[in-house]
């Protein structure tokens, strides 16, 4: 249980980022890259300022900055949203390794950074954030006027526009928010869990978050629940692999593959009506331009 609360927050936050962006109609394959920028910036910020909280802020800002590139390309320049996200991941892979080496002189890991404080139960603030933020996000998306507008531009942007919603700026804000959440998720990996940046981060967690978005049917609580479930599967795998090692079965990979197989099955068998927001990935061209 403790282990789940420790490892779930990056996944939960990134998955919420995915929900925010996709509910507003912008596919976000770039979660992985945004997490990577966030993780690196958080470690760097924490090391240079001496404060893990400042690092967290840097992580959120770096996530937002990389999301701004995605928003600019896909909304302003009408690039294909999938291509733009893929490109962002490629850039994150190369640029962060390059920065890691230029700043810290090592292509493997950063020096140890200050870590977020832990309470007497051994949890960081991010563990509580992972429990609370999904609820706030759920109420915001389903019960407030702003949330309604976000859902409207994701389902039927033209109709939203006729009601006076400015579609592209709203979508841009959602993509930026998505970057903040993914960046915070990445920051949790470096200054929250490991206490340094590792060049392999986030090691596919961004893609797993994407799977959680789909598994959770594009809803905040569903995606967060899926993220917790995946983290639990991961924790279980860690525990089991100890006992399975003895038998030399080495089934870790099977357990690690499980969340992805389950998500595929849910999609393929259409368990419980899985539907993406109607205008997800569809570029919006304002009229009269």
């Amino acid at each position: 249980m403790n282990e789940i609360l420790d490892f779930a927050p990056p996944l939960v936050l990134a998955a919420l980022g995915g929900v925010l962006s996709e509910r507003a109609g912008v596919v976000n394959i770039g979660l992985e890259g945004m997490m990577r920028f966030g993780a690196f910036a958080a470690a760097a910020g924490a090391i240079y300022s001496g404060s893990a909280w400042f690092g967290l802020l840097c992580g959120a800002l770096a996530g937002a900055a990389s999301a701004a590139v995605h928003a600019l390309l896909s909304l302003r320049f009408r690039a294909d949203q999938v291509v733009s996200g893929v490109a962002l991941n490629l850039v994150a892979l190369g640029l962060v390794t390059y920065l890691l080496q230029s700043v810290f002189g090592s292509a493997g890991v950063s020096p140890p950074s200050p870590s977020l404080p832990r309470d007497r139960f051994g949890h960081t603030a991010m563990a509580y954030a992972a429990l609370i933020v999904p609820l706030i996000f759920y109420f915001w998306l389903s019960r407030t006027a702003a949330g309604l507008r976000v859902r409207a531009v994701g389902e039927h942007p033209r109709a939203a526009a006729t009601l006076g919603v400015r579609v592209l700026p709203l979508r841009a804000w959602c993509v930026l928010g998505s970057g903040v959440l993914a960046g915070l998720g990445g920051a949790t990996l470096s200054v929250g869990i490991l206490g340094q940046f590792d060049s392999r981060m986030p090691a596919g967690q961004g893609f797993m978050a994407l799977a959680a978005v789909v598994f959770g049917k594009w809803t905040p609580l569903g995606a967060a629940g899926a993220a917790f479930f995946f983290a639990a599967a991961d924790a279980l795998q860690r525990q089991l692999s100890f006992s399975l090692h003895a038998a030399d079965l080495r089934l870790e990979g099977v357990f690690l593959a499980l969340p992805y197989v389950l998500t595929l099955l849910v999609l393929a068998l259409g368990i419980g009506r899985t539907r993406a927001p109607a205008a997800d990935g569809v570029p919006y061209e304002p009229e009269g331009r």
Binding site: V214, R250, G253, L267
Partner: peptide, 21 residues
């Protein structure tokens, strides 16, 4: 979505199980 998921299924099954075991 499906190709991204299948990538990770392949990575984990092959690297975490078949080649390791």
């Amino acid at each position: 979505i499906s190709t991204i998921l299948l990538n990770w299924v392949a990575i984990h099954l092959v690297h975490g199980w078949l080649v390791a075991g």
